[in-house]
Computed example of a mutant assay.
Amino acid sequence: MAFGWRRTHLGTEADRATFRTLHTASLASPALREGLTTASAERSVRHLRALLGAPALAVTDTVGLLAWDGTGEHHAHQCPDVIARALEHGGTRVADHRELPCDQPGCQIRYAIVSPLVVEETIVGTLQVLTANATAGLVKAADEVATWVSGQLELAELDASRNRLMEAEVRALRAQISPHFIYNSLGAIASFVRTDPDRARELLLEFADFTRYSFRRHGEFTTLAEELRSVERYLLLEQARFGDRLAVTLRIAPEVLPVAVPFLCIQPLVENAVRHGLADKGDGQITIIARDAGAECLITVEDNGAGEEPERVRRALAGDAELDSVGLGNVDVRLRDTFGDDYGLVVETAPGAGTKVFVRVPKFAPGVQT
């Protein structure tokens, strides 16, 4: 039996119109998700005008024009006055020919439908639909599009707030890098200056690279390879101090090295393992494993040290600063903020039983890149 294909399978004309509208909105969305700037306005204004089918459309901040698309650009100088009245009005309003005087023959612009763009209950700009006839339908459509644009700008602000918060958390974590570690590392390096100058020089270079990485100022993500390289430098410096008392085992699957992880998310776990691994003991064993787990990378940091009361660990992960001297709670929050609540730290510990910390990260996550 033969089956024919017919255009009606695409749906009704209303369905196709809905698709076209959604598609056009999707073209404007990426720029708007960057916030309200001249660049984002210029990239989105053409698509916003297509949504409304108007002769011209302007996007402004609260001071002046950011972008214009369509005819009648000689009206652009009138935008500041129109903005001022929109800020006073607070809602969508229509500016007529008295606010838009024009001596250009054949100009189509007689009205401007002005809708405020609102982020967190504050007007940050306007959407101005310039037209020959401000019908009730077009006024309502302009208001709806402005509301949608405001929603995209709200999401942009949420993204920016999240990034600012994560940057603040990384700064806080840097501040928690133990001064004792720095002093002790330099002391250990100094002890080799006379007895083994070559090793002293190598350790000094490792210390410089470690501090350079820890205090770098670009990017909230890094690769697992870079993070583990910094961890290796940290452990080399600690081994210079503790000698044979600190034994380290690393088992890293090569295929997970390119995985993107939050900056400084492994080092605090290793620092915690060293502290507990050597607490009240003659020696300590630290084991770091990173393996491929299908769509995820599984990282474990384990020590054979004194262990901890589970309730104290729970409080540390909940943000109790008195119990979280190396920032485990900070790491847990950043993992959850980045990948979702399913990706927080899991800690197995008990007094006298050592500690094992599990980190799961997806190999690929939207918006996460180094």
Results as ranks from 00 to 15, higher is better:
P262T: 07
R314N: 13
L57K: 04
R16A: 12
A172R: 14
A175W: 11
F263M: 10
G72W: 06
L257K: 06
T355Q: 04
R33E: 11
D159C: 08
V270N: 02
A86K: 03
G294N: 13
V270T: 07
V119S: 06
A28D: 04
C102L: 02
T38W: 09
L100I: 07
Y343I: 04
I123H: 02
V259M: 04
E13S: 13
G294Y: 10
P262K: 12
R233P: 08
G307Q: 07
V261W: 01
L205R: 13
L328F: 06
L27V: 10
D143S: 10
H218C: 14
A41I: 03
W5E: 15
S29Y: 12
Q267I: 14
I252N: 05
T122K: 06
D292W: 05
D81F: 11
L269I: 10
Q285T: 09
L52C: 00
V145S: 10
P310A: 08
R164T: 15
F207S: 11
I299K: 01
L224P: 04
T8P: 07
E73L: 14
L117M: 00
D337G: 12
T37W: 02
F207Q: 11
L66V: 04
G35P: 03
G319D: 12
G352H: 03
T338K: 10
S214T: 15
S115V: 04
K356S: 09
R85V: 13
S230I: 01
I289S: 15
G70C: 09
S325H: 14
G294C: 10
W148S: 01
P262M: 11
L186K: 07
L298E: 15
E238A: 12
R33P: 08
E13D: 14
A168Y: 12
G277S: 07
R251V: 12
E73I: 13
